[in-house]
Design a binder for these strands. Structure first.
Lengths: 215, 215
DNA sequence: TAATAATGAGTGAGTGGTCACTTATTAAAT
DNA sequence: ATTTAATAAGTGACCACTCACTCATTATTA
C-alpha cells in the first residue's frame, strides 16, 4: 500500500516549489503552530521565531497572514488530498477482493492510517471548517469525485454481486465515513493511540451488518 | 414530545438568573457573535455595541472575555444538555415501543430536532472543541451518563429481547451518533435545511441493517 | 413627609500591550 | 555592480481590561 502521507507530499511540493530554504521554514513553522495553537492564536512573530527568521522575511513571500494559511491549505485540498485519494483508489481497485468485507477492512485501515499520519494538517483543517462554512462544501465536492473513479466502479461491482445494498454511492460513503470518524476524531483532536486493526475490524462488523443480532 | 429546545432553556435560565436586563443582553449578543465570527474574532467592543451597552458594563459582571464564554458554555454542558437528555429519556421511557426500529426512529428524530434548534450554541461548542482537547473528554463523560440511566435500561431491554446486538452500550451509541452526525454536521456548519423525517428514516435503515442487502 | 445618605449598576475615556504589517538598512548572491 | 534576500526597528490600529465618576434607586434620618 504505497500511500504517501501528507507530510511527505507536503515536503515534496515544498522542494518542487521555488521557495527558498527560509521560506520553506516559514511554512513548516506555521504548520506546527497553527495545528498546536490555532490560526488566530499564532502571531506572525511566533512564526518568525520558530522558523529562525525575521518577520520581514515572512512577509516577503506571503503578503498577509491569511496568505500563509492559504499556502498550507490550498495545496492540501487541491493537490495533496486528490492525489492521496487517487493513489488510494488505484491501490484499492487493484486489490479488489472477492468479499466486500475483506475489501472494506483494507480500505478503512488504509484511511485510518492516512488520517493519523496527518493529524497536524487535519487539525488545522477542522479548525478552519468550523469557522469557514464554504470549506465544507469544497471538501464535499472533492469527496464526490470518488464516485466517478475506479473505486466507484469497484464498489458498484459488489452491488451487482449482491454483496452490497443498492443505495447511491454517496449515501454508502457517507455512512462508512461517519463510522470511521467516530474512531478518528477523538484521536485527532485529543491525541492518544488508536488500535487501527481493532478499530477497522469493528467498523466493518457494524457497517456491514448493523445493530440487528446475527441469527 | 415535550422537548424544549436550548434557545428556550437558555432564555429561561437567563430569566431565572439574577442578571440584569443589560447583562442578559451581553450574553445574548455574545452568543450571536461567537457563533457567527468565532470567539477569537469577536472583540469585547463588538459585544458591547451589539448589546447596546458600554464596554465597562460587559466587564462589571464577567471579569474576563473567557468568563463570557464560560457563562455560555458551562450552563449548556452542565445544565441544558443533561436537562435535555433527561427530558428526552423520560419521554422515551414512556413511549417505549415494541420494536427497536420504531424506538430508534423516534429517538433519532428527537435528537436531530434538538441539534438544529440549537445550531448557534453547537457551532460555538464545535469551535471550542477543535482548540480545547479536554472538552472532548468532558462531553464524553456526559455521554457516559446516558448509559447509566433509564435510557440505558430501555436499550438493554431490546438487547434481552434479541432485537439488538449485545455490544457494549458505549459502542452502540458511538455508531448511532456517528451516523446521525453525518446528517447534522454539514447543516450545523454550513447551514441549509434538513428533512428530519427522511434523514431519521434513512439513519435507522442503515444503523439497524447495515450495508448487506436484505435477502 | 421631606431631606439626606448609601448603594451599585452603568459609563466611556483611558492604558498598556500585542498584533499584522511596513520600511529603511544591511548582507548575500549573481 | 546590481539585483535580490534578509533583517530589525518601527507604526498605527486594535484589543482586553480598568477606573474614576454619574445617576437612578433605595434606605435612613429628622
Amino acid at each position: 500500500m504505497a500511500n504517501k502521507n501528507f507530510t511527505t507530499l507536503f515536503s515534496e511540493s515544498l522542494d518542487q516549489s521555488d521557495l527558498s530554504a527560509k521560506q520553506q521554514a516559514v511554512l513548516r513553522a506555521s504548520l506546527e503552530l497553527f495545528s498546536q495553537k490555532g490560526f488566530d492564536r499564532t502571531s506572525t512573530r511566533d512564526i518568525a521565531d520558530r522558523a529562525a527568521v525575521s518577520e520581514g522575511t515572512v512577509y516577503k513571500q506571503f503578503k498577509t497572514k491569511d496568505g500563509i494559511l492559504k499556502a498550507i491549505l490550498e495545496p492540501f485540498i487541491h493537490q495533496v488530498l486528490p492525489k492521496a485519494v487517487t493513489e488510494f483508489m488505484v491501490d484499492m481497485a487493484q486489490n479488489a477482493t472477492p468479499t466486500i468485507d475483506e475489501f472494506l477492512e483494507k480500505a478503512v485501515k488504509n484511511r485510518m492510517k492516512f488520517a493519523l499520519d496527518n493529524r497536524q494538517q487535519l487539525r488545522i483543517l477542522l479548525q478552519e471548517i468550523t469557522r469557514n462554512a464554504n470549506l465544507v462544501s469544497l471538501i464535499g465536492k472533492e469527496a464526490a469525485n470518488i464516485i466517478n473513479s475506479p473505486l466507484g466502479n469497484v464498489i458498484r461491482k459488489y452491488q451487482e454481486d449482491g454483496q452490497l445494498v443498492r443505495w447511491p454511492l454517496q449515501r454508502i460513503i457517507q455512512y462508512i465515513s461517519g463510522t470511521v470518524l467516530t474512531y478518528l476524531l477523538p484521536k485527532v483532536l485529543a491525541g492518544g493511540e488508536l488500535d487501527i486493526d481493532q478499530a477497522s475490524k469493528e467498523t466493518v462488523e457494524f457497517v456491514m451488518h448493523g445493530l440487528k443480532p446475527a441469527k
